[in-house]
Nucleic acid binder design. Sequence first.
DNA 1: AGACCTTCTGCACACGTGTGCAGTTGCTTT
DNA 2: AAAGCAACTGCACACGTGTGCAGAAGGTCT
Lengths: 342, 342
Amino acid sequence: MAITIKDIARITGVSHSTVSRALGGNSLISEATTTRIRKVAREMGYQPSAAARSLKTNQTKVIGVIVNSIDDPFFSEILFGIEDAAQQAGYSLFIAASQYDPIREQNIVQTMMEQRTDGVIICSSSFSADKGRQLLANGFPVVVVNYKANENFNYSIYHDDVDGSQQLTEHLLALGHTKIAYLGNSKSGRTSLDRLNGFKKEMCKAGVKINPAYIYEVEGSEPELGKESLHYFMNLSDRPTAIMCFNDMLAIGFLHACRQACLRVPEDLSVTGFDNITFSAYTSPPLTTLDQPKYSIGNESAQLLLALLGNKIENQNNTHKEKVLKGSLLVRSSTSVPLPNE
Amino acid sequence: MAITIKDIARITGVSHSTVSRALGGNSLISEATTTRIRKVAREMGYQPSAAARSLKTNQTKVIGVIVNSIDDPFFSEILFGIEDAAQQAGYSLFIAASQYDPIREQNIVQTMMEQRTDGVIICSSSFSADKGRQLLANGFPVVVVNYKANENFNYSIYHDDVDGSQQLTEHLLALGHTKIAYLGNSKSGRTSLDRLNGFKKEMCKAGVKINPAYIYEVEGSEPELGKESLHYFMNLSDRPTAIMCFNDMLAIGFLHACRQACLRVPEDLSVTGFDNITFSAYTSPPLTTLDQPKYSIGNESAQLLLALLGNKIENQNNTHKEKVLKGSLLVRSSTSVPLPNE
DNA sequence: AGACCTTCTGCACACGTGTGCAGTTGCTTT
DNA sequence: AAAGCAACTGCACACGTGTGCAGAAGGTCT
């Protein structure tokens, strides 16, 4: 059994309220007794019970974070940004992974509610909107990150995927490509759509028509799916000269499939990714991608939530605050001028 | 303010104790009132307060997990295994990353103690032993995973790194290599030493002498460090024909450096990794490595802890339980017969 | 009809912490 | 010396939940 303020009270010969106040730094208690009590507390290795404290104060100093899966390097970096901000403000993280599983999602929501998390950050693009609304309905401050249905939430941080995709498209167009294809991920809904739209927008701006067969989707972003995609594109009678992949994971699998098929990148085919995860710098060839400010996204989302908790921003239904962050083009070696004979 | 059992009591016209019992499934309460109360609770969206409950029951149904960093793909997969086991048993995870920072480590320990986590899993090889002992001293059940100082703890799960390293060495020896080098990571202490020892052991068994210059260490396992290492090995007058890297991350960086230096792998140099992280299958060439059962390691560690919590195993100072898991050699394309002219 | 048992429910306290209010102590002032 | 004041501390209750014990209600048996 852990020791309590009552134990300290007994030993120092004061009441437990005095101990509580002394440890809390209340100026009512004399400096002498305060230091004495603190010393004893330290010596006894006293640790306040978070449960008892939050029961009384009605706040837990814990913020919940919902992600798709923990072992996705993209989310990991966002988490890192969140953790930094939280830690600094004295908050801890309660992390849960939905794994695309509705049952887990429900469990997570329930756990967050039972734990009385002070707030929740949803950075799972696949997390169902009604589950999120359940949290809102129960009065939880919620910040969504890169969320497909952010119009349902008042506070959101997201990356400008349309703009990012335009940057990549512009890069490929500038190199001289016109036969550009887009490899999407149907599972990530809105995000993939935004990137597709950015592509379309820029192509339209440049007056280049898109071959409908050049838009292809797979279900997920595991590198393994790259092989299937390459097969599809190579079977087209009129092959594209550049492929824009939904994200780096997919691009990495795609590059791998190219190597196996003895297709040279970028000579035979230019390939781009999206996100700039760590490993995209170490592929062969190193991947041209869009550097998404993952750390900042995480950090800012946490800061927004913390501001909400500190009532620095009113959490009302009529306020609506969103922050859009832009990424930057990162040209490596997987893109080049298309072959002249094509 | 969330609704409580008292609210339900008021509405159903019974006392709060009856509600508590009804929801808890106590057989003392008549079936009729039980169903009636449960129905009201469901309709009102009642969620029990974890804080109040744990204050009373003295258990939180939360287990703490300490890792080096969240954005390390190796730990991510272990986490995945832990999460599965925990979730199934109705436990939630409290995850904290030490980031190799002593101050953070102290904060983490304190937070775990304040939160009264039911138990703690330490899978951070760098986590300082005295911090861990602090948890033990306060009565927390602790399971360590791949921990450098596991002799200090009663319960541990670890991977047999010596054996794994022997398997890799045996593979290289069988291919005909004798000039084999080891690239270690000084930051991960024991783990790196074990792998080095496995290498030495197997070389000794085969009667092959190790050139002392072939043992080199870097500080960390960021891929970026691969470049420095290659530089070192290539400057040796008598170059090795095979390099065993501490882990996949390092190997991936090393492979990248080889490509930049126009060294062919495996023709000019065989390279091996360790861990089998997802991306090791997508390098160029695909990496020969040791497949460490990461999911199982995580899963078993959680199960061990859960058994401890359920008192299925006595948590005493004299009991000592450890489980050793072995990995398996995974031959891909980064290793081959050494060049005859060397 | 009264005694007894069964079945159900409420009272009251506990867990560890925080806080308004009243009370105590010791000192200064008149 | 009495009154007043400042400085400090303790009492008692609250937060939401769980549980031993007593008590109430209803039924059965002698």
